[in-house]
Design a protein around this nucleic acid. Structure first.
Length: 547
RNA sequence: CGGGGAUUAGCGCAGUCUGGCAGCGCGCCUGGUUUGGGACCAGGAGGUCGCCGGUUCAAAUCCGGCAUCCCCGACCA
């Protein structure tokens, strides 16, 4: 009880669907037998997450004679409005996107979550290639002396670098860092590979894991090890490098808005928020369902700084030896968390069709073997019709239809196809949208044409809904006081004139908890006096509490 | 790093005050009846009570030590 979440969240008589019997508390890890850990490690790991995520669930039931009336159904996830972070954790675990691992600070990305990541990765990889980049793979380890070449970069990362100090039974002469990011490795190699202006630009990307020492785990958003993509490029001129930085920011914007249906604000980071060692950092900022900001991707201009440190020079056309201009840019598995937080609702995940592992799930309904056969015939038929067009999953598992409805809603599948005796008789299926729960009967013959259209429609709706939400939570303000007042009521984005001074930025953070998320590339045209010092020369900045 | 809690079946918990057969719910397995919004009945499997030591005829329970995890306050994608 002591660790449970607040009482009200447990007893909230949630949605309701005429369930006939008593409460049925479902599983925490549905298929526990999947886990093949030693007993010892299990002991350690089971206390990490499950306890936290689900503790106290039962406790609330005892108190209520009132809950015994048959018309309430309690979901196994916290209410979003009640405790957003618990809702998030519940959903990620129950939807089987990820699970806590026996390794402190780390998580396991489960097949369903990994399939989502793979779809995201493939869509982005296509865009990265289309803009002229190629993939490669660099090592996991970085020798200590190499990492320490660049002072500011090292200082930025040193608190979170993991070190290898021994190999087998022998201590190492020189420690090896496990990459927190790979600038120094890429650039060390670039100094070998680049001789002439003809070698430029170098445009390499890699998909890899990185490690940043973390004490506290927040699934997908903050873990010790995470997956990402990091592009590292070298250019002949400053103009080219700057174009690259903004090009990739635009690739990210397009990717996140088109594939993930999450609207973002592209902009520059302030001096205080920029990447360690960068000359300029750009970002796309997204708003989550609780009004907090999440950085969804970054792109950095390094000027010639790293080139000087790593001695990356080339002989230019005019015979002069010059330093290259470098950039880097990346997005991470954090985006999986962003999708959950941007679109999810009180029933669980809501996945954008373009990246959903299953775009549609077929739920068979039957009362006897003979009906089952006929339903099977229809489902097999539509699986053939949809093959290659729609990612369809037929759920023949041994559960009741009602159980499956809830399960697949929790897991965010965009469209559910109910197929029972009535539908077989009418030559149709009942299609139900996850986002609106709107139902429509579709003749089997029209499905292969109409389902893709329906999915596109859902994709558009999700974006429109997220955009409308963001706008409803965005405010133009002229003073810290206005932020303080509003943020107590509700979190959101605050657009305000800012003079560019770091002290003013720090003051906003101290008084509101909101940080300067970005200076939007496309300003809103408004100007005014700095929200802190009142100075008239300003640019528009977006402030928000962030993840 | 500072403060507060917890550790008993796969999960959530009761039992500890006052020492005396290891319990409950859900999940899991088998069989049957079911199936259009998380089905029901019957039977069954599952435990070094976090670890080490002490007290006692007897320890989940009392005493000492250790470990681990969670929550709240400063940095990060």
């Amino acid at each position: 009880m002591a660790r449970g979440r607040p009482m009200r969240s447990r007893t909230t008589p949630v949605p309701v669907m005429g369930v006939r019997r008593r409460f049925h508390l479902a599983v925490i890890i549905g298929r526990g037998s999947d886990l093949i850990f030693s007993r010892a490690s299990l002991l350690a790991f089971r206390r990490r997450g499950y306890n936290r995520a689900f503790s106290g669930f039962l406790a609330g039931f005892g108190e209520g004679a009132d809950v015994s009336e048959a018309s309430r159904f309690v979901q196994e996830i916290a209410e979003q409005s009640d405790d957003f972070s618990r809702w998030y954790t519940d959903v990620v675990l129950k939807a089987e996107l990820a699970d806590y691992s026996p390794v402190r600070g780390c998580m396991v990305i489960r097949p369903y979550g990994y399939a989502l990541w793979e779809n995201m990765r493939d869509a982005l990889d296509k865009r990265i290639r289309a803009t002229g980049h190629v993939n490669a793979y660099f090592p996991l380890f970085i020798p200590e002396n190499l990492l320490k070449q660049e002072a500011e970069h090292v200082a930025g990362f040193s608190p979170e670098v993991a070190w290898v100090t021994a190999g087998g039974d022998d201590d190492l002469e020189e420690r090896l860092a496990i990459r927190p990011t790979s600038e120094v490795l890429f650039l060390t190699m670039y100094s070998k590979w680049i001789q002439s202006w003809r070698d430029l630009p170098v445009l390499i990307n890699q998909w890899a894991n990185v490690v940043r020492w973390e004490m506290r785990t927040y699934l997908f958003l903050r873990t010790m090890e995470f997956l990402w993509q990091e592009g590292h490029t070298a250019h002949r001129t400053e103009v080219e490098a700057q174009e690259e930085v903004l090009r990739m920011l635009e690739v990210y914007r397009d990717f996140v808005e088109t594939e993930l249906a999450i609207p973002v604000i592209p902009g520059g980071k302030s001096e205080g928020e920029k990447f360690a060692g960068a000359q300029a950092t750009y970002t796309i900022e997204a708003m989550m369902g609780d009004g907090r900001a999440l950085q969804a991707g970054t792109s950095h201009a390094f000027g010639q700084h790293f080139a000087q440190v790593f001695n990356i020079t080339f002989l230019d056309r005019d015979g002069e030896r010059r330093h290259v201009w470098t950039t880097s840019w990346g997005v991470t598995t954090r985006l999986v968390g962003a999708v959950v937080m941007a679109h999810g609702d009180s029933s669980g995940l809501v996945l954008p069709p373009r990246v959903a592992p299953y775009q549609a799930v077929a739920v068979p309904i039957f009362r006897n073997e003979e009906e089952a056969q006929r339903v099977r015939g229809v489902i097999d038929d539509l699986a053939r019709r949809l093959d290659g067009r729609v990612r369809l999953h037929a759920d023949w598992s041994d559960h009741t239809p009602g159980w499956k409805f809830n399960e697949w809603e929790l897991r965010g599948v965009p469209v559910r196809l109910e197929i029972g005796p009535r539908d077989v008789a009418n030559g149709q299926v009942l299609a139900v949208r996850r986002d609106t729960r709107e139902k429509q009967a579709i003749p089997v013959g029209e499905l292969s044409a109409r389902l893709p259209t329906l999915l596109e429609d859902i994709q558009r709706s999700l974006f429109a809904k997220a955009l409308a939400f963001r706008e409803s939570r965005s405010h133009r303000v002229g003073s810290i006081q206005e932020i303080v007042q509003q943020i107590e009521v509700e979190r959101g984005f605050f657009y305000a004139p800012w003079c560019g001074n770091g002290e003013c930025e720090a003051e906003v953070k101290a008084k509101t908890g909101a940080t300067l998320r970005c200076l939007p590339l496309r300003g809103d045209g408004e100007s005014g006096a700095c929200l802190v010092c009142g100075q008239p020369e300003t640019t528009t900045a977006v402030f928000a509490r962030a993840y």
